[in-house]
Amino acid sequence: MRRQRDIPWFKVSLSMMVLLFMPVVVHADNNAKAVHPELSEQEMYISCADCHKEATPELEKQWYDSSHGIAIVKCYQCHGTFGTFKLTPTRTDCAVCHMDQLTKCSTDTACWDCHTPHLFKAKK
């Protein structure tokens, strides 16, 4: 699963580097678990969206055009950063800003039961 990189990152442009990452992003059936490539400390200083624009263009676009994208609520605000990363944010994460909305929902409903991830619109 893991790929060895022997090219120092600074010798390749940002976009090339993203292409190098591409093969290691795997999607497993309905559980959609993505395995993130290992990054050097240097690479961790690139913003998530910069790589994901090319690695997961559809997700990035959904986010970019959503109210979160326009208001610049960035990836790390919901998903955390390296070391604290979580694939699926919890109610508690949403509650930081959306406390009052949460009080209107029953406590056993996850936010994603009603809202589409990255679009944030209510599911019809």
Binding site: I72, K74, Y76, Q77, A95, V96, C97, H98, M99, D100
Partner: peptide
């Protein structure tokens, strides 16, 4: 241990940005 926005506040209505978070 953590932070949350104040929904009754007329400045931010509970919303905070990443710096606030």
């Amino acid at each position: 241990m953590g932070i949350r926005g104040v929904a009754e506040s007329r400045t931010n209505f509970g919303y905070i940005c990443m710096k606030g978070m």
